[in-house]
């Protein structure tokens, strides 16, 4: 290692010491100095990205994550922290994309200890994304309702004015009554459409992981043909080494992704975002 490289590594270690003591400002400074010595030190960018995330310098943190990903596109923590920053900035779509990349990197690298963390973050992103979509949809629906009611109200007003000019007292009353009935009908239509949003909050059994009772995100299948969430079955297999249903010996390598079920779960969650924390 060159002198510069050795100095950079020492500075990075100093940064890590500060980081462990949660002194993020001091850690960030060390990592920056390390990068002056060695501008290609991927780990220093990744570490500084974490500091900057905790210091809520989200844009700067994302820049560091990008510097890491330019050198190593499968760097788990860079995807993870990029996603966390994006989520903090309210960019739910891109946050979801990088949360998924982090989770997939985790699975591909067999980094089981990070499986829970990355999966839960992915869930948070997806939930957040659905909430945003849902809020927008409801907002648009309410605006549309107000607009339609306004159109109808103006029309009724016109009819009433016309009747007031030419017609009798009885005619005017009839026009008023007809108008109120039409308004009530229209309100009823919107009311019923809204009610549909709140019913049928049920998750089909076959999308549910029998270990956590959550909707599955990444179902994997055992040789006996049953599917479980990757994180929960991995945990059990590491502990017990058996299939939870048949009690036959089972190891991690026996677990195969169940892609069709994964698509079904993902389709269901896209339509029913409330099920993320159901």
């Amino acid at each position: 290692m060159s002198d510069n490289g050795a100095r950079a590594e020492r500075l990075r270690q100093d940064g890590n010491d500060h980081f462990r003591r949660r002194n993020y400002t001091a850690a960030e400074a060390c990592y920056s100095q390390a990068l002056v010595q060695d501008p290609n030190m991927t780990a220093a960018y990744a570490n500084r990205a974490m500091c900057r995330f905790f210091l809520t310098s989200h844009d700067a943190s994302i820049t560091d994550c990008d510097a890491v990903l330019a050198r190593d596109p499968n760097y788990l923590k860079a995807h993870y922290y990029k996603s966390k920053n994006l989520l903090a900035l309210g960019n739910v779509d891109e946050a979801s994309t990088h949360a998924l990349l982090a989770y997939e990197a985790c699975v591909a690298q067999g980094a089981d200890t990070s499986l829970k963390m990355t999966k839960e973050h992915l869930l948070v992103c997806r939930k957040e994304r659905w909430d945003v979509k849902e809020r927008r949809r409801r907002h648009a629906a309410r605006a549309f309702e107000r607009e339609m009611l306004g159109v109808l109200e103006r029309e009724i007003e016109r009819d009433v004015l016309e009747a007031a000019e030419g017609g009798s007292e009885a005619e005017l009353a009839a026009v008023r009554e007809e108008g109120n009935k039409r308004l009530a009908d229209l309100r009823d239509v919107f009311e019923r459409a809204r009610a549909k949003d709140d019913v049928k909050r049920e998750v089909p059994e076959w999308l549910i992981d029998d270990i956590t009772y959550n909707v599955m995100l990444d179902p994997v299948m055992t040789p006996s043909g049953r599917s479980y969430e990757r994180e929960s079955i991995t945990k059990f297999v590491e502990k017990a080494g058996t299939d939870p249903t048949t009690r036959e010996p089972l190891s991690k390598s026996d677990l195969k992704p169940n892609r069709v079920l994964k698509d079904a779960c993902s389709w269901f969650l896209d339509e029913n975002g409330w099920a993320y924390d159901w």
Partner: peptide, 8 residues
């Protein structure tokens, strides 16, 4: 027991 237990 931890041997016979199943999370299902």
């Amino acid at each position: 027991g931890s041997q016979g237990w199943s999370p299902v």
